[in-house]
Every structure is written in C-alpha cells, then in structure tokens.
Design a protein around this nucleic acid. Sequence first.
DNA 1: TTTGTTATGTTGGCCACGCCAACATTGGCC
DNA 2: GGCCAATGTTGGCGTGGCCAACATAACAAA
Lengths: 157, 157
Amino acid sequence: MPTDHPPSRTPARIKDRPTWLISRTFARSSGLLAAGFESYGRGLRSYHYRLLAALDEWGPASQADLGRGTGIDRSDVTAVLSELESLRLVERSVDPDHRRRNIVTITPAGVEQLLELDNVIDGIQEQVLKPLTNAQRRQFIALMMKLLAAEDESSKG
Amino acid sequence: MPTDHPPSRTPARIKDRPTWLISRTFARSSGLLAAGFESYGRGLRSYHYRLLAALDEWGPASQADLGRGTGIDRSDVTAVLSELESLRLVERSVDPDHRRRNIVTITPAGVEQLLELDNVIDGIQEQVLKPLTNAQRRQFIALMMKLLAAEDESSKG
DNA sequence: TTTGTTATGTTGGCCACGCCAACATTGGCC
DNA sequence: GGCCAATGTTGGCGTGGCCAACATAACAAA
C-alpha cells in the first residue's frame, strides 16, 4: 500500500510546476487505487484489471494482441495471465489455426470479478475527484483528454 | 528511458476514467522528464534534482530534514546524497553540535548544475502542456492544485 | 522447396520510485 | 545512570514499465 507521504515543504522552484503537480496527482490517485485493489484481496492489481477488461470487451484474444491493445508488455502479459489463470478467471488454449498462439478467454468467474472491481474502482474515481465540483471535474477530465489526444493519434497509426 | 508505449485501443470502461487519464498523463510527463534528465547525462534523476533544489532553497540541512521536507525516504536520501557527493555537487559534514547528524551543503558546482537542470525542466513543462492553450494551462494547474490542497493541509499539521 | 524473416510466448533481467525494517550510534530526558 | 527518540545506513520489497534472448511456429522469397 503506497502510503503517499507528501513532502512537508516542497521547494518553490518545484511546487508549482505542472510536472510536479501531475506527479503528486498521480501519487494520490494510484495510492487510492492500490488501497482499493488491496482491500479487495486476491492479489489483483491494475494489470489484472486491465487484462480482464480487455478480454471482456474485445472477446477472446491472443496474448500478443492483448499486449498491444492494453499497452502492457508481452512478458508482463504472460506473467499476469498465469496468475489470472490460476485464479480461474481466464483460460488459455492453443489456437488451432496457429499453434504458436494462445487464445485467451475470460471465464464467467472472471466476468464476475471484473464487475466487482468495476464497482471498487468507480468508488475511487469519486474519492480522487472529491475536492472538485462537478463542473471542475468535467473540466479536469476534458483537459487531460486534450493533453493526451496527440499521443492517442500517433499510436493509432 | 520510459518509452511510454500507450495502448492502441484501451477498453471503454477504462479509457474515460479519471484515474486512467491521470495515469496516462503522468506517464507522458514522467517520460519526457526522464528523457530530459537522461539527455543531460550524469545519471541524475528526479530525486537528485529535488534534493539539490531543497538544499539550494533551504540552505544546509540534515538528511532527516531533507527527507521530511522533500517527502523522500531517509534511506533513499542517503543513497542519492552519496551519488551527489561523489559528483561533488554536495558535501556532507558531521554536525558538531549533534554528532549523529550530517550537515549537507550544496557546492557551487551543485548550484550550477541545479540551474542547468532548471532550464531543462522548464523546457519540459512547455512540452508537457503543449496541446493546451494558455488559458487551459492555467485551468489545468489550478485544478490540480485544488485536488491536492487537502493533502497539503494534512501534511502541514 | 529450401532459406530467410517475422510473430509468438516465455524466461529472466533491469530501472525508477516509493516504501519498510533493523541496526548501531548519539543525544536528550527523567 | 537508564530509557527513549532521532539519525544515518544497509538491505529488502512491490509496482509499473521496459528490454533481450530464446525456441518454436508460420510465412515469404528465392
């Protein structure tokens, strides 16, 4: 559990810089997220959630496709899928048309787990944004989307 | 260097969530920052910068105070200071009034290094915010500050 | 058809950042 | 004098994000 120990003073040349604010914001967000995952037990972390979500949404897929789709490295996909498999949340089978490839499928238990995680994570969005009014939340989200739009474009190519 | 490999699709239940946007924003920011530090060579990273900035701004301090002030763990402070010391950017001396304590001082070379890093890092602020207009940048910064205000309060106690 | 070349899954490793525990040592307090 | 707190240090752990190397399988070019 990242306990998120913020600095007590923070040098002036640092404290107002966007990169610093972004980093603190992320620390707060990921701390809350980690606490959420942990309170949930099972040893699931964000990678697990991302993979379950991808499988639920895109249907059965190869590990390589999962990696590309979620931005998780192949090797990490392998490791996390093994954990998910041992929890019976996904299943791996060899693609008959391409025996080097695995077809990964989410199980009913996996879907159920995913839905529960959805709830936990939704609650955390609320916590993260709590200091902002609704209008400010919308603004904040819109600004981040704009900030990331270029990146999204370039990776779609 | 974090190469920041964004996902190519991103599941819908994830892609609009604030925690996800925050995490992507941070990935972008810290990727640019890391590239900046690395292009600069010398093996300096954000911890080094934070400590140099703290020393420059608050004057000579003990390691424990540096840790509390910057939010960096004592043990990490020790390690990073050793690197800074071997680069002759800081000096450690035993506090005569408290021989368990070190007094850490930034050297002239350290100040110089800090100023150069300042420039690099300022350039990165620009890059990070590039997609936003000036008004949007101000908004974005203000929103993050509000988001973090509660945390700052509680750690001042 | 044989010879590269590319894609896939796996293993094992590395780094940054953030933590924590344990320890010896020092100083302050009662 | 004896206890407690603070200090610096060592060593370790976890997460997220990477990369390299490898065997194997499929594919493309020759």
